[in-house]
């Protein structure tokens, strides 16, 4: 389908991009990898007058070590994230989830920042970012601010990023040596998850000492299963050992009902997938 007419600008720095945003305000949309924005435009679900393409801002691309965290530039593609050594070493959960995003073509274009900014509750990266306690660096005309994961996801397709702001990078606290697993439940391979569970655990000698669990598509935003996390401390690293804790996975969630499953079924899936994801992350 053909999008409505728009004007296009491709700034080469964050400052220029912010200027363009300030100028056009809510008549503008930011373009990163385009894997969500272009379908929206083509299906005419939105018709911005301006599209501001971040593609030429090299500073937003790449992954670096920053002491107790790794920092992923907003424009880094899913493909680059999943093949990065720092990500593998310090944030294995992110790698596991990025590998599960869509298909190879989408992963070569779609970006880490774009996916998080788009805030699709069925997106694969929100729950892992939330589980790992990511911090979101957001630039605006007044300077840069950092928003914690718990405050970043506001609602369906809504984040803490203001209309005149840009997500520039995401800091992921290092979880070096933690096991991780992303259990994504789909009917066909190229689908968004019906439900997914992001689990990363620290396990010593067959016992879980610490765990972080994020849920995808179990509400209007990614969710953290804190009840499960607490119950996991001290659990045996096996499916049976974590069964009781995992049974709490759907507590307090409000999942959608759609073609792929009812809310009730999703609640059930969350508990099964949590058990499996945690056990797999713990090597059990």
């Amino acid at each position: 389908m053909i999008p409505a007419r728009f004007d296009y600008v491709a700034p080469t720095s964050v400052e220029e991009a912010l200027q363009a945003l300030a100028e056009h305000g809510d008549e503008a949309k930011i373009l990163a990898g385009g894997q969500s924005l272009l379908p929206v435009l083509r299906m005419r679900l939105n018709a911005p007058e301006w599209v501001i393409d971040l593609g030429k801002i090299d500073a937003l691309r790449g992954i670096r070590d920053d002491g107790d965290a790794i920092v992923i530039g907003a424009l880094t593609t899913h493909h680059d994230v999943m093949h990065d050594a720092l990500v593998e070493e310090h944030a294995l959960l992110i790698k596991k989830a990025a590998t599960e995003v869509a298909d190879a073509q989408v992963r070569h274009r779609g970006t880490f920042g774009g996916a998080l900014a788009h805030a699709d509750p069925a997106g694969d990266l929100g729950a892992p970012a939330l589980a790992l306690g990511a911090e979101f660096v957001i630039a605006g005309s007044g300077g840069t601010r950092t928003v914690g994961a718990d405050d970043f996801f506001v609602d369906l397709f809504e984040t803490a990023i203001g209309e005149d702001e840009i997500l520039t990078e995401v800091r992921i606290p290092k979880h070096t040596g933690w096991g991780a697993h992303y259990a994504k439940f789909v009917r066909v391979a190229h689908q968004w998850p019906i439900v997914a569970v992001a689990a990363t655990v620290k396990a010593d000698g067959g016992t879980i000492s610490e765990a972080r669990v994020g849920l995808t598509n179990m509400g209007s935003t990614p969710l953290r299963a804190r009840g499960v996390e607490e119950a996991l401390a001290g659990a045996t690293a096996s499916e049976d050992g974590v069964r009781e804790a995992a049974a709490k996975a759907a507590d307090g969630t409000n999942p959608p009902s759609d073609l792929n499953g009812s809310a009730e079924y999703r609640r059930h899936l969350a508990t099964v997938l949590t058990r499996r994801a945690v056990a797999a992350a713990a090597g059990g």
Partner: peptide, 9 residues
């Protein structure tokens, strides 16, 4: 119900 992945914002 359909999944709304491409919500227009």
């Amino acid at each position: 119900g359909a999944m709304p992945h491409f919500d227009g914002g």
